[in-house]
Structures are given as structure tokens and as C-alpha cells.
Amino acid sequence: MKAFRLEDVNLQYSGRPVIERLNWQADAGKIYSIIGPNGCGKSTLLKALARQLKLQSGSILLNGQALSGFAPRELARELAMLLQSQDKAPDMTVRTLVGYGRFPHKPVWGPMRKQDEDIVDWAMKQTGTHHFASRKLSELSGGERQRVWIAMALAQQPRVLLLDEPTTYLDVSHQLEIMELVADINRLHGVTIIMVLHDINHAAAYSDEIAVMRQGGLYDCGKPEEAVTAAMLADVFGVEAHIERHPRGGRPFCIITGLLRKTGPQPPKPEQAEPVEAAIAVGSI
């Protein structure tokens, strides 16, 4: 079953074309990572999947139904989206924030029911946030806050979870905690995960498939061993890289060895420059 199917999608941002004629599909129950250089349209695509941006043309289907045809609360029961970490934490307790995930399911003006409270408890236990449920978000570390946001999304009980750079601003250990948590949500609950990542090795280690974007289009999409290649890193990111196999699991692991040299006119060699010009150049460094 296809969680998402995109057909000839065109998107603009501030009047400028960002994504043009993009075709892509994501199977239900898998983990997908979207990678690519800054400005290639990764976050724009994710917002379009969450219906936060209007398509210029083309169509997006969610579970076989036009994304535009979902009522807001109906869509919120199908998918959840977490943006990049925010600098300012809301002035509320962990449990209060996680409870917001129940809004699409409970009566509009009604209080939290016992079944809602039970799901909030479950979501906090799943994410390891239950032991600081009464603390304010402002008192938590960045990694702890990110787990709370994921708990809120889990309490929403979506079939699809969209994550925009979930490890941004976190240290190495907290990055791995979040990636392991995302993998557990997929494995234990069958939630389709689509996330934008900057760390290519994280994408390779945790994804079933990787979508590589370049200049508003899809450069490639496939299993990590198919998508993460030295040729792709050269074409898309402009870097030289060596691809190894990770000792745990055999997934591709890229080692960046340098920038590719730019082609085009080169500056004159020192002996070709006039003596005075050379002295000015050295003195200006």
C-alpha cells in the first residue's frame, strides 16, 4: 500500500519555483529519509506532504485519497508533523504538551477522557518521558524536549509521521537516541516515517529508502546501498567521498575526503602576476 503518491508536483515559495514536476511514492510502514543540499526543496516537500503549502499543480495522494480532500481533523488523525527544534520551549508541563496530541480524537470542546489519558501515558512511556511528566519543558535538555515533541506526535496516533531535521542542535548521543526512538516507533507500531536529514550516515543507517533531491527535483530514490554512492555525493553535494560498509549491519557509511575542485578560470600562478600586485595580494590576507 502506498502511504503517499506524488504526481507531477510543482511548488513555489515566495513566487519562486522550488519543486518542479516531482514524481515520487512512499510505501506504508517504511522509513524514508530525504537528503540533499541546502535550498534543494527538502523542507518544502515535507510541508507539502503535511498540506502546509498549496500546490501550483500536480497531485498528492495519501492512502489513495487526494490530500486536498481530507478535513483538517481527519488529516490530523492520519499524519503528524514535527518541525525543527524551537529555541523557545512552551511554558507548560510535559504531560500538557503530550496531551495536545489527543485533540484530533477527543470531542472538540470536551475534556480529556480516560482513554485519552491512557494513550498519553502510553506515549510518554514509549518515549521515556513519563518520569518527568510534571516538569516544565523549559527545564529539560534539548534531547529531552525533542523526545517530548515526539511523544505528542505519538499520542496523536498517526499512520504517518513527518520529521524535519529531528536531530538538529543535538549532541551525538542525543542524535542517536532520537534516531533509535524513530526506528522503534516504526518497528513496533508500523508508523510510516518520512524525515528530512542532513546527516547522510544517519539516513543510510536508519532508512529503508533514501530520496535524494537536487535543484527542486528527485535525483534518485532507492535503498541506502543504491542511493548512497560516491557518484551521488559528487553530483549532488560536490564532495569527494569513500564509501565503506558499516561493521554493524553492512549499511553504507560515507567518509568525506574533500571538496571537488571547481572548474572554470583559475587565478594566475604567482610567477605570472606582476610583483606589485603579488605583494598587495599577500598583504591583504
Rank of each mutant, 00 (worst) to 15 (best):
D116F: 05
Y169H: 15
M112S: 11
R135M: 08
Q126T: 15
E177H: 13
M112K: 02
H131Y: 11
R135V: 04
T167V: 14
S173G: 02
E144L: 03
P166T: 03
H174F: 08
V160A: 02
A155W: 11
A123N: 04
P111E: 13
S134A: 14
S173N: 14
S141F: 13
A133H: 12
L162C: 06
W122V: 00
A133V: 01
G142F: 05
V172N: 00
S138F: 01
G143M: 05
W122P: 04
A151P: 06
M124E: 09
Q175D: 10
P111N: 11
L162T: 05
E139S: 14
L163C: 02
Q115P: 00
V172K: 01
D121C: 01
Q146D: 07
D171W: 13
V172R: 02
S138V: 09
D164H: 04
R113L: 04
Q146W: 07
A151H: 05
I119E: 14
Q175M: 11
L154N: 03
H174W: 05
I178Q: 08
L163Q: 05
R135I: 03
L137W: 12
T127R: 06
S173E: 13
T167S: 14
I178H: 04
A133T: 01
L176F: 08
S134E: 15
G142A: 06
F132I: 06
R145H: 11
K114E: 15
K125E: 15
T167K: 02
D121S: 06
P158G: 02
R145V: 05
T127V: 02
T129H: 09
E177I: 10
G142I: 07
F132C: 06
V172H: 04
H174L: 04
R147T: 01
V120F: 12
I119T: 13
R113I: 00
M152P: 10
R145W: 11
